[in-house]
Write a protein that binds this DNA or RNA. Structure first.
Lengths: 197, 197
DNA sequence: ACCTGAACACCGTTCAAGT
DNA sequence: ACCTGAACACCGTTCAAGT
């Protein structure tokens, strides 16, 4: 009738994996550890998830949603330029607060199959620089934000000569926004960039 | 007299590891593969390198030197602003040409123990925006460059709506440089960024 | 002094066997 | 239907034994 009662659930496994990723990072997560955390043996995990990658993909999707929600909330009720600044600082705060969670978002092998959903940033940027440069401007901002927090998390900034990282970030955000507003009417194209100054 | 003649050398092992990293990436490199490539068994590698990390660290150091050289060469003989544009495009070309080599440069666990040597970018930036903002401006540019090429290598840009990645890059480089030049006299500090526009 | 096979403690994953 | 132990093919690394 009811042979071998279920000891756990997909949801519980996902939560356990999530916590382990947060503690030990993606590379530090083993199927045996996840299994132990939910009170079963590793082979049983394969009844709920195809393989380790599928499990990590599910974790990543969950983290992605939370991250997007944080950014949306940060932007709420502000005009475009200010919203972008708020987004920038919320972005960095998330990465610094949950570095291993931020990193799982950027593991190429775990990228969502259909590409990412349209982001807040994209929309806010659009209303700032106009639709013609929206995609490129969004790429520019995403690149800067991702680069900055990654280098900061990695400890790659030489802090011997620079002031506090907070000031460097605020300065950089100002620079990029300033550049975007001023370049809103610039013709896009490779030739233009080499003629600066 | 001469028991157990050496079949290989530190240099040869390093070269083999380098090639394997270029082909399969850091995570794809196994000690047994390296050993086979130089005609010995895995345990013998430990006579030349302390462990896998030490070997990868040596590879990283070599790649780092090459990368720096490429950037220096790109900047040679150009005035600051143009030099920065040249550096930017050389940076991206390197990352696209040898993605696995670029990625090994940014593995935190392989970072040089004493921090990185002073970079070309830092010097060029200094002569563009002045010494007072040099460190922050260099951080800004490094962040943008690293972020852009990483997102591009990862396929994270939605290319459905944007034009070619080349144009997005040229546009972004223009934006950041424009922002830097305009912000050269801006007071640094967190408060300022929120007052943009 | 350098190289080797055997071994250890880990992985992810499969599978036949249990209930 | 779900769980299990045993097993397989991999890891990095150690070590006693060979020359």
């Amino acid at each position: 009738m009811s042979p071998a009662i279920a000891k756990t659930s997909e949801t519980e496994i996902l939560a356990a994996a999530r916590q382990l990723v947060r503690q030990n990072g993606v590379d530090g997560l083993s199927m045996r550890d996840v299994a132990e955390a939910v009170g079963i043996r590793a082979p049983s995990l394969y009844k709920r998830f195809d393989d380790r990658e599928a499990l990590l993909r599910a974790v990543r999707a969950q983290v992605q949603e939370e991250f997007e929600a944080v950014l949306v909330k940060a932007a709420e009720g502000h005009p475009p330029a200010q919203a972008l600044t708020k987004i920038a600082h919320a972005y960095r705060a998330f990465a610094r607060g949950k570095p291993r969670m931020y990193r799982i978002l950027h593991r190429p092998e775990l990228a969502p199959r259909g590409g990412d959903a349209p982001s807040v940033t994209r929309n806010v940027v659009s209303s700032l620089v106009g639709e013609s440069h929206a995609a490129q401007a969004a790429d520019c901002i995403c690149a800067f934000l991702h680069g900055f927090v990654t280098l900061e998390l990695d400890g790659s900034f030489t802090r011997a000569d620079s002031k506090s990282p907070d000031e460097a970030f605020a300065f950089s955000v100002y620079v990029v926004l300033q550049g975007l507003v001023n370049s809103a009417d610039a013709p896009s194209g490779a030739g233009r960039a080499t003629q600066v100054v």
